[in-house]
Measured scan of single mutants.
Amino acid sequence: TEEYEYTDEQQAREAAREWREKGYTVTIEEHNGRWRVKTG
């Protein structure tokens, strides 16, 4: 599992979409105004 943090929701969603296209399972969670994208 890798985790990436973004301050911008749009960036987080874009990144998540790219990971999904590569076949990863992706979770996005908002935490204190930051967006965490977890792949695994």
Rank of each mutant, 00 (worst) to 15 (best):
E30N: 09
V37R: 00
A12E: 00
D8C: 04
G23K: 03
A16V: 08
I28Y: 03
Y24M: 06
T1D: 11
K38T: 14
A15Y: 05
A12V: 03
W35C: 01
V37W: 02
E14F: 06
Y6E: 01
A15S: 07
G23N: 03
N32P: 03
E18V: 14
Y6L: 03
Y24F: 12
H31P: 01
T7K: 08
W19R: 03
E3S: 11
Y24P: 00
K22W: 06
Y6D: 01
Q11T: 13
R36N: 08
T27K: 07
A15W: 04
T39E: 04
R20W: 09
R17F: 07
R20M: 13
N32H: 08
A15C: 08
E29Q: 08
A12Y: 01
T7F: 12
R34G: 09
D8K: 04
E5T: 09
E5G: 05
I28M: 06
R17A: 12
I28P: 00
Y4L: 08
W19Y: 07
K22N: 05
R20Q: 13
R20N: 06
Q11F: 06
W35R: 00
Y6I: 02
R17P: 01
R34Y: 11
R34A: 10
V26Y: 02
E9H: 06
I28A: 02
W19H: 03
E18F: 15
K38N: 09
G23A: 02
G40I: 15
Q11N: 07
N32D: 11
A16F: 06
E30M: 12
T39G: 05
D8Y: 06
R17L: 08
A12Q: 00
R17H: 09
K38A: 07
Y24N: 03
E21N: 10
W19V: 02
T39H: 10
Q10L: 12
E21P: 01
K22G: 04
E29T: 13
E14Y: 06
G40Q: 15
Q11K: 09
I28K: 01
W35A: 00
T1A: 12
V37Y: 02
R13L: 14
R17N: 10
G40S: 15
R34E: 05
E5L: 11
R36D: 03
G23R: 02
G23E: 02
Y4S: 06
D8M: 05
K22M: 10
N32F: 07
G23L: 02
T1E: 13
H31V: 14
I28T: 03
A12L: 02
N32M: 07
T7D: 15
E9R: 05
W19E: 02
I28Q: 01
N32L: 07
V26A: 07
R34M: 13
H31I: 14
V26Q: 00
K22Y: 05
V26R: 00
E30V: 10
G40N: 14
Y24T: 03
E30G: 06
I28W: 03
G33M: 03
E29D: 07
T25N: 11
H31G: 05
I28N: 01
T1H: 13
V37H: 01
R34L: 13
E21I: 08
D8I: 05
T7Q: 12
K22H: 06
K22S: 05
H31W: 10
R34K: 13
G40R: 14
A12W: 01
E18Y: 15
R13Y: 11
Y4D: 05
R20P: 01
R36F: 15
T39Y: 12
R17K: 12
Y4A: 06
E18A: 13
A15N: 04
E14N: 10
D8A: 04
A12S: 02
W19A: 05
Q11G: 07
E29W: 13
N32R: 05
E18Q: 13
D8P: 00
T1G: 13
V37E: 00
W19D: 01
T39R: 14
A15E: 04
W19T: 01
Y24D: 02
Y4P: 04
E9I: 10
T1V: 13
T7G: 11
D8H: 06
G33Q: 04
E29R: 08
T1N: 12
Q10W: 13
Y4R: 08
E29G: 04
E3L: 12
E30R: 08
